[in-house]
Amino acid sequence: MKQCWILVGVLALAGCQNMEAVSPWVDVGNQIAKNAGYDTDSRLARGIKDVLHTSTDRASTSLSQAGAFRLQLPAAARPVADSLRQFGFGSYVDQLETAMNRGAEQAVGEAAPVFKQAITGMNVNDALGIVRGSDTAATDYFRGQTEGVLRRRYQPIVEASLRKTGFYDQYKSMLAVYDQLPIANKPSMDLERHVIDSSMATLFSRIGEEEALIRKDPVARGSVLIGQVFGVE
């Protein structure tokens, strides 16, 4: 029982904000527990994977619902959009923004298998780093592991949605001309990049919010195992 209380104490320390100060104690506690027959590293890894599964599932499910996004045209394009509305062509702007949002919602559905693969590939050292990290350490790790793949998966989905407007080719032709204009520091008019950047920022922000809630109340928001990892028995 003495070793169990040592382990509980170490895991409680893992929930502290100043993790640099307590990291040596986490390592010592892990070694003591291992000597007593407890594989704490594996338990930490399982707990962190639970955090990632829970936070990503909640975030991707909520953002894949119709109406989840409220994306607008990039700032550089809004003067043009305002002019179109003044002259009675607002329906084209509405159609374009609707396509942007539907594309963002559909693209989020592509995140689930990418997230699952990243979680499966996580090792014990990754998990230990997350326990010692900030309130969004798991999200930050996850973004580094998945962002490149997600961008590649998002692009054709966003393009397909924009094509449904019926004037995608005209937009691309206009963009090609705009990109060649000799204007210094001109703002981006690339709608696909705008949708992908905005939707991914929203997705990882939502995952970070879920992670912070889980860390704050790990049992209620996550599971008993997560609670044990973050210091709640």
Rank of each mutant, 00 (worst) to 15 (best):
A99R: 00
A99C: 09
M100H: 01
M100I: 09
N101S: 11
R102L: 09
R102C: 00
R102I: 10
R102E: 09
G103S: 07
G103M: 08
A104W: 00
A104C: 04
A104H: 00
A104S: 08
A104I: 05
A104M: 04
Q106G: 01
Q106N: 08
Q106R: 11
Q106L: 06
A107T: 11
V108L: 14
V108E: 15
V108I: 15
V108G: 06
G109E: 06
G109K: 06
E110P: 00
E110V: 11
E110M: 07
E110Q: 12
A112E: 13
A112L: 10
P113C: 10
P113K: 10
V114Q: 02
K116M: 09
K116Q: 11
Q117K: 14
Q117R: 15
T120Y: 05
G121M: 08
M122V: 09
N123A: 02
N123K: 04
N123S: 07
N123I: 14
N123F: 01
N123L: 06
V124Q: 03
V124A: 03
N125R: 15
N125Q: 13
N125K: 15
D126M: 06
D126V: 11
D126S: 13
D126Q: 11
A127T: 06
A127Y: 03
A127H: 03
G129C: 05
G129L: 10
I130E: 08
V131Q: 00
V131L: 13
V131N: 01
R132Y: 02
G133R: 03
D135W: 01
T136W: 04
A137F: 03
A138W: 04
A138G: 14
A138Y: 05
A138H: 07
A138Q: 12
T139H: 07
T139E: 12
D140S: 15
Y141W: 15
R143V: 13
G144K: 11
G144D: 08
Q145D: 04
T146M: 05
E147H: 05
G148N: 09
V149F: 02
R152K: 12
R152Y: 08
R153A: 14
R153M: 13
Y154S: 12
Q155H: 14
Q155N: 12
Q155E: 15
P156G: 13
P156W: 05
P156T: 11
P156A: 11
I157D: 00
I157L: 07
V158G: 08
V158W: 01
V158F: 04
E159Y: 03
E159L: 09
E159R: 07
E159G: 06
A160F: 01
A160V: 11
A160E: 12
S161H: 04
L162E: 00
L162P: 01
R163F: 03
R163W: 06
K164E: 15
K164A: 14
K164T: 13
